[in-house]
Design a protein around this nucleic acid. Structure first.
Length: 414
RNA sequence: GCGGGUGUAGCUCAGUUGGUUAGAGCACUAGAUUGUGGAUCUAGGGGUCGUGGGUUCAAAUCCCAUCACUCGCCCCA
């Protein structure tokens, strides 16, 4: 392990894993496309202000997890720790607000300076969707349904729980905040150090503390529902009714909160047991205040992000890679015959492997290791008859096939 | 950033109270098989025992530090 090693928290993604990732991305993209979402890509780094302004000065992501540096031109830039901020920035800088509503899908690497752990890396990959310009509960419902359908496609939905909560509108939230501060102040000394800190910065976050004593105190804390005004209550009711109509089951969790100010109304997380401490697999919510906070005109937004590495650890039904057909020249003189046959078959859509060296035995051995489904044995004898031997590597059966009908034969038999 | 566990071959691991040239299985390479793979047999390559320092006549083994991985806290996807 000495010498060269990847930077802590980063990893090489080898073919098997990349294949899984790709399946996940393609599944997500496919479902999103059917909902009318289009793929976009924003830069992997932005001016640091983009994240500082959107994520807030109080969040851990901004205060201690960002990869920030000054570039050669003296600009302070940051490797993106999440996807939504960049999309909001794009909406503003690209003048896209005229075309609302907009439906975007994205995927790509994110960076956070955290302590690596199971399902947690410093460079990791997310896929996500953002629905911009839809203030109606229908947007929340659509986005959740979209997420659920992707998880279903990956065979994960049945192993996960949709947790759902509302953070209400701004008025309700600040009213609740007051209630919480009032309540927790009486227990200030008993709260964990972290939660005492949270009481100043972000009292909502105390609600999802894992500290035992905190939890006891939280158990009797005021309920958000009691602070919600009529608008907020009705909005949430519409969301849950929509989910009911779609038979998407969920669990109300009044302790599910979001740290950031611009979040409002619906907050949701699909969680699972299979990932240790990192149980959240797809999470999001409504962020109507975000674009305005960044300096654009007020724009409703709702979306989610999912961790690809986490999905990859859980995905059940990843298909196998396509199996190839190996072309094996029996004698060196037939090398060129082999490469032109390979070229021809590849152009017809077949996946062809050419052993690069060795006698027939070696090449068959290699074909077997590559999990090829068949081999085409090109020998002088058959070639005189304008044919080649096709050997099925699963059954060991082989037959002579004329070169003219070779492609058809392969199509039929594989 | 804080706590616990673990680092011996590409992988999974063994290595007895410190004691000669550090082992196995799998994998890899070659041969048995100059037109037939998966099985078997034979041979071979591959290790500064994570790294650095210390104790000792002698360290994979004991001590310290450090790095990495891992499980929690935290944070979240």
């Amino acid at each position: 392990m000495a010498g060269l090693q990847p930077v802590r928290g980063t990893r090489d993604i080898l073919p098997d894993e990349r294949w899984r990732h790709r399946f996940i991305e393609e599944t997500a993209l496919g479902v999103a496309a059917r909902y009318g979402y289009s793929e976009i890509a924003t830069p992997i780094f932005e001016f640091s202000d983009v994240f500082k302004r959107t994520l807030g000065d109080t969040s851990d992501i901004v205060t201690k997890e960002m990869y920030t540096f000054t570039d050669k031109g003296g600009d302070e830039v940051t490797l993106r720790p999440e996807g939504t901020a960049g999309v909001a920035r794009m909406l503003i800088s690209g003048g896209l607000a005229q075309d609302l509503p907009l439906k975007y899908f994205y995927r790509g690497p994110m960076f956070r300076y955290e302590r690596p752990q199971k399902g947690r890396f410093r460079q990791f990959h997310q896929t996500g969707v953002e629905l911009l310009g839809v203030a109606e509960p229908l947007g929340d419902i659509e986005v959740i349904a979209l997420g659920a359908e992707i998880l279903e496609g990956l065979g994960i939905l049945s192993k996960s729980t949709l947790e759902l909560n509302t953070l209400g509108n701004a008025e309700s939230r600040s009213a609740y905040r007051e209630e919480l501060i009032k309540y927790f102040n009486d227990f200030r000394a008993e709260l964990s150090e972290d939660s005492q800190d949270r009481l100043e910065r972000n009292p909502l976050r105390i609600l999802d503390s894992k500290n035992k004593r905190d939890r006891e105190i939280v158990a009797n804390a005021p309920e958000f529902a009691d602070s919600l005004d009529t608008e907020s209550t009705e909005f949430f009711a519409a969301v849950t009714e929509g989910l009911d109509a779609l038979s998407i089951s969920y669990q109300l969790n009044s302790r599910l909160v979001r740290g950031l100010d611009y979040y409002c109304h619906t907050a949701f997380e699909f969680t699972t047991e299979g990932l240790g401490a990192q149980g959240t697999v797809l999470a999001g919510g409504r962020y109507d205040g975000l674009v305005e906070q960044m300096g654009g005109t007020a724009t409703a937004g709702v979306g989610w992000a999912a961790g690809i590495e986490r999905l990859a650890m859980l995905a059940q039904n990843v298909p196998g890679v396509e199996r190839s057909i190996a072309i094996i020249p029996v004698v060196p003189e037939l090398q060129n015959k082999a490469i032109s046959l390979a070229h021809d078959l590849r152009s017809r859509g077949f996946t062809i492997e050419l052993g690069y060296r060795g006698n027939m035995s070696r090449r068959l051995k290699r074909a077997n290791k590559l999990n090829a489904k068949a081999s085409i044995i090109l020998g002088p004898d058959e070639l005189e008859r304008g044919a080649a031997t096709v050997r099925n590597l699963d059954t060991g059966n082989q037959e002579e096939v004329s070169l003219e009908t070779l492609a058809d034969h392969l199509k039929q038999h594989n």
